[in-house]
């Protein structure tokens, strides 16, 4: 009884590790450093992400860019990510795209809606300038209404000041 409980804990610990790995940035390589043989019965499976999938876009290409406080201009890091988005969007031309602009909670509601719109538009303009068909793109702003990180300090705020390139179904 004791032993089997411990075994179950080990299995779930490894399962958690595998899950954590799934969110990592090197997914899609197909490598499996955990030697999953023997754990298949635990419901763990591993496979490379389809490079044409929305998961691949979100996790490997990177679906979001971050902004400094009260700014909507694109940083060098943001442009790198957006260049990757352009390449992917060109290869996967059937997706319609909504760019969602967001703000952190340090600001009044209406202003943050307008600020999020600026951020979304900055991304849209960059994607179009790099060749993405403007008719595939729409923007929306959620202002401070949809935080993904909920602490009230810069570690969270920096994650919330974002523009997310959301894929909305294959249009073809």
């Amino acid at each position: 009884m004791k032993i089997s409980l411990r075994a179950a804990l080990i299995v779930s610990a490894i399962a958690l590790a595998a899950c954590a790995q799934k969110d990592g940035t090197d997914m899609g390589t197909g490598s499996d450093q955990f030697g999953t043989g023997g754990f298949e019965n635990g419901g763990i499976s591993s496979s490379a992400l389809d490079p044409a999938s929305t998961e691949y876009f979100a996790q490997t290409v990177g679906d979001r860019v971050l902004f400094p406080v009260d700014q909507s201009s694109l940083t060098a890091d943001a442009r790198l990510i957006l260049d990757g988005q352009v390449a992917w969007l060109q290869r996967n031309g059937s997706y319609q795209i909504v760019i969602e602009g967001h703000a952190d909670e340090q600001g009044t509601r209406e202003y943050n809606v307008a600020l999020g719109a600026r951020r979304a538009n900055a991304v849209k303009e960059y994607l179009v300038s790099q060749g993405v068909d403007a008719s595939r793109l729409r923007t929306v702003s959620y202002g401070k209404e949809r935080p993904i990180s909920v602490c009230s300090s810069e570690t969270c705020y920096s994650q919330n000041r974002r523009a997310v390139t959301a894929l909305r179904g294959a249009g073809s």
Partner: peptide
Amino acid sequence: PGTMSFAPRFSPDGQSVVYSLERNGNT
């Protein structure tokens, strides 16, 4: 189409609305 509108408020006579309209990132 393609714009967002928000922050409405009635005029004192109730006949008009003043609001913000966003187009191409500008409000």
